[in-house]
Amino acid sequence: MELLIFYPLAGFCVVLALGVVFNNSPVGSAISLIGMMLGLSGVFVLQQAHFIAILQIIIYAGAIMVLFMFVIMLLNLKKGDDAGWIARERNLLLSVLTGLLAVGILYKISDVLFSAQMDTPATLPDSFGTVANIGETLFTDFVLPFEVASILLLAAMVGAVVLAKTKLD
C-alpha cells in the first residue's frame, strides 16, 4: 500500500524537478519548485518524519519560495531571458557531457544500491518523527548546533540587509 502512494509521489517530484530545469520562464520554474517541495513533504510523511514534513512546507514552500518569487517579480524577469542556453556556442557539447554524467551517476548508484546487502529495517516506535521526539533530541544532544544555527541565521539576516542596501556609507 505504501508503495502505491510512493511511486506516484516520486514520479510527481521528478517530473516537477525536470520542469524546474527545462522551463523557459523563471516564474514557471518557481511554481514547479513549489510543487516539488509539496511532493517531497508527502515523501517525508511516508517516511514517518511528520515534523520535518511540516517544516518543509513552512520553510521551503512558504518562506524560501516566496523570497524567490519576490526577487523574480522585483527583477522583472521575462520569459526566455536566458533563451541563449540553446544557441550558445559549445552549449551542445556541454549538454551532451552533462547528460552522460547524469546517466553515468544514476547507472552507478542503481548498480550499487540494488546489489547491496541490506539489513532488515528497525521497527519504529510510535513516537518516531514527532515534535516531542525531535525536540528532545534537539535540546539534549544537539543544543550547541542549534545555537550556532541561530547565530548563522542572524548573520545571514544582517548580511542580506547590508548587501541589498542601495548605498553603503
Binding site: A17, V20, V21, W85, N91
Partner: peptide, 17 residues
Amino acid sequence: LFVIGIVGVLIRRNVIV
C-alpha cells in the same frame, strides 16, 4: 533529484534557475 539539480546547474545560465 540530485542529478536533476546538477544538470540544472550545469546547463542553465539564468542565475535564479
